[in-house]
């Protein structure tokens, strides 16, 4: 069974057709790299794939469930990392991740979360309100979710390398490769060249007006 199946997707915004007739079928262990210039519809496509936006026409199934009709079932095992990071500025990194784990049924102890934060270079910053961290550090806190959700089957990552330093980009690429090798499926966009030692399927979206 396909992990992600999208059929005949059409996206329209403000009377403009961003893309049409997009068909995607991804099985376990596949990586889809979506490219295109600004405004081509990469983020819109990703949001449609995870059910946050509705397509003009077309259907999306994740693990056999229609994401737009049965979101709680379809989003089991789905991890979406979008432009908005999904972390509260007033809470600390540790609190944010604890609340996120509880909301997504991820079993992770405080020690495990602190361990992931240490791995991402945030030792000593666990209890500081996120608003007091730099943009890159805030991004790391949000990315910690990739390390914590062990049972995910699909990652949808919208420009995950933004605001990260070279060292962490390499670490994230290694993490993505490891996830793919363990049978995970990834859909991602990025304006950077991807240095992953793994077969990559490419979907290019053309900007049209």
């Amino acid at each position: 069974m396909s992990v992600l199946l999208a059929q005949q997707l059409v996206c329209e915004k403000s009377d403009r057709q961003l893309f049409s007739d997009i068909n995607i079928e991804l099985s376990s262990g596949q990586l889809l790299y979506v490219t295109g210039e600004n405004g081509a519809g990469k983020t819109s496509l990703l949001r449609i794939l995870v059910g946050l936006s509705a397509p003009a026409t077309g259907k999306v199934h994740i693990n056999g469930f229609d994401i737009h009709k049965d979101m709680p079932s379809a989003s089991q095992g789905l991890l979406y990392f979008g432009h908005k990071q999904g972390i509260s500025q007033l809470l600390s990194a540790l609190e944010n991740l604890q609340f996120w784990c509880q909301q997504h049924d991820v079993k992770a102890t405080e020690e495990a979360i602190n361990g992931v934060l240490a791995e991402l270079g945030l030792t000593g910053l666990e209890d500081i309100a996120v608003k007091n961290l730099s943009a890159g550090q805030q991004r790391r806190v949000a990315l910690a979710k990739l390390w914590l959700q062990q049972d995910a089957s699909l990652w949808v990552l919208d420009e995950p390398f933004t605001a990260l330093d070279v060292h962490l980009i390499a670490e994230l690429e290694a993490k993505i490769t490891l996830f793919l090798k363990s049978g995970g499926t990834v859909v991602m966009t990025s304006h950077q060249k991807l240095s992953i030692d793994y077969p990559i399927s490419n979907l290019h979206l053309d900007y049209s007006w």
Partner: peptide
Amino acid sequence: RDDFADGSLEQYMLSPTPL
């Protein structure tokens, strides 16, 4: 407002608990 601005709302929608 804050949940919408920081993306927590998106994460709520994608959680296994119905919105």
